[in-house]
Structure formats: C-alpha cells, structure tokens
C-alpha cells in the first residue's frame, strides 16, 4: 500500500533521513520505533508532504506522491495525527472534528463519521462546544485521533499517540488503535513505548540516526536482543 524507497531528507545542512526504505501493506499495523532524534517524525512529515526529500520516492497505492502537496496526499487517503496532537486551540471540539473532514463534500458521510467518532470517544461528544484547548492531554489525543478519522483515511499515520499519557490511558489508546485497524484502516504507528507498540503490530522497523537498522514481525523484534537492550529496558 505504502512504499518508502530510499528517501533522504535534509534540514539545511542537517541530514535527517539517510536512505530510509520501508513498506506498509493493506490492513497491517506497522510500527516504527527509535530513540529521540532518530528521524521518525521527519519520515511522517515527508509522507504527508510537509517536507520534500532530496532523494528517493514514496509510492502510495501505486502512485508516486513525492512531488505532491499535502492536500493531494490527504485526498488520496493518508492522514496524520502529528506528534504533540496539534489540535486547533480557540476552535471548539466540533470545529476541530470538522477540520478533519475539510476536503470531504459528502454531508451524509461526514455525519455518519461524526456519529462513529462520538461512539468511539464518548467524552468528545460531551465536550463538543468547548474550546479544544481546555481539554486534558488524553482528551486532546482522542480529539486528534477523532479529527484524523473524520478524513476517512485508508492509511493512518500516528506519531507517538501515547506520549505524556497515564498508563491506563496508554492502554486505552492502544486498544483504540487496534480497533481502528480492525475496522479496516491500515496503520503506521510511531512509538517510544516499544513494548506496547510491538505487542499490537504485525511488523516493525527500528530507526537509528536516520536509518532503518532492524525490521521484522512484532514478535521477532520483541525477542531480538538489540531491541530488548535498547528499547525494552533489558
């Protein structure tokens, strides 16, 4: 479904991605783990069209999207929940959700998806008219995910959705991710919480300083000595 082929990304003189290759197949949950500054967010921003690589290609549904703008990419079915949530402060929860459906014109479909977001995140329904910036961290994460689902994505990119959340909420978020996947959305999940991520992922990649250094099924990676030492605390 998604193929990232040997991409290089620079921030000025900083060479952030040094030839990254990975793929995500229809229906999978694929996780990408790696320490701070490895280049994980950079990769997602590149897939979403916020950054453009100096070399390499990104193919989505047999279509190169590397030269496309983010509008085209969202339209073709890739939506991202960015690191740090980035909900729109000063706008209500409802308006934030509508922003997720920005490119859609099917009123009935939007209404249906609103209902299913309310069902998945009942707290959002209670807070609809509230300024989104007044939500708690966990609620903001749910809003960010609900907003992304409003685009009805084929591929959902999640950048550290468990960041800064209490353990019980982390569990809840991971359950929701599994459920979103079960209802037909393919997922590329970036996580620092390697244990949880690998436990729900079909496959995983490990990134270090701009390169993929390991890959395998979730199980294989959980068992790997290198991963255990570096990311699972021994």
């Amino acid at each position: 479904m998604l193929e990232v082929k040997d991409i290089h990304v620079h921030y000025g003189a900083i060479h952030a991605l040094k030839g990254v290759t990975l793929n995500v197949k229809q229906g999978e949950i694929v996780t990408l783990i790696g320490s701070n500054g490895a280049g994980k967010s950079t990769l997602l921003k590149t897939i979403s069209g916020l950054l453009h690589p100096t070399k390499g290609d990104v193919v989505f549904l047999n279509n190169s999207i590397i030269k496309k703008d983010s509008k085209y990419i969202v339209k073709s079915g890739i939506t991202q929940v960015p690191e740090g949530r980035h909900i729109f402060p000063g706008m209500t929860v409802y308006e934030n959700l509508l922003m997720g459906a920005y490119l859609r014109k099917d009123k009935d479909g939007i209404q249906q998806d609103l209902e299913s977001v309310y069902k998945r995140f009942p707290i959002l329904k209670e807070r609809l008219r509230q300024d989104a910036s007044t939500l708690s961290g966990g609620e903001q994460q749910m809003l960010a995910m609900g907003r992304a689902l409003m685009a009805r994505p084929k591929l959902l990119l999640l950048d550290e959705p468990s960041m800064g959340l209490a353990p019980i909420l982390v569990q809840q978020i991971f359950d929701i991710i599994k459920d979103i996947n079960a209802t037909g959305t393919t997922i590329l999940l970036i996580e620092q919480n390697a244990r949880m991520a690998l436990s729900i992922a079909d496959r995983g990649y490990v990134m270090e300083t701009g390169k993929i250094v390991l890959s395998g099924t979730g199980e294989q990676l959980s068992q790997s000595e290198e991963v255990k030492k570096a990311y699972l605390g021994g």
């Binding site: 069209g49 509008k71 991202q80 960015p82 980035h86 729109f88 509508l98 922003m99 685009a151």
Partner: peptide, 23 residues
C-alpha cells in the same frame, strides 16, 4: 463557513491545517 474555519486553523497552526488538507 469552511473557509472561515480554515482561516482560523491556519492562523493558529498552519502545519496542522496543512495536515487536514487545507491549502
């Protein structure tokens, strides 16, 4: 309106607005 929401979204967070598909 939609364009108004886009204007407000861009003014608070242009990158996030772009991720929603806003031009």
């Amino acid at each position: 309106t939609k364009i108004g929401r886009a204007m407000r979204a861009v003014s608070v967070d242009a990158d996030a607005a772009q991720l929603m598909g806003v031009n």
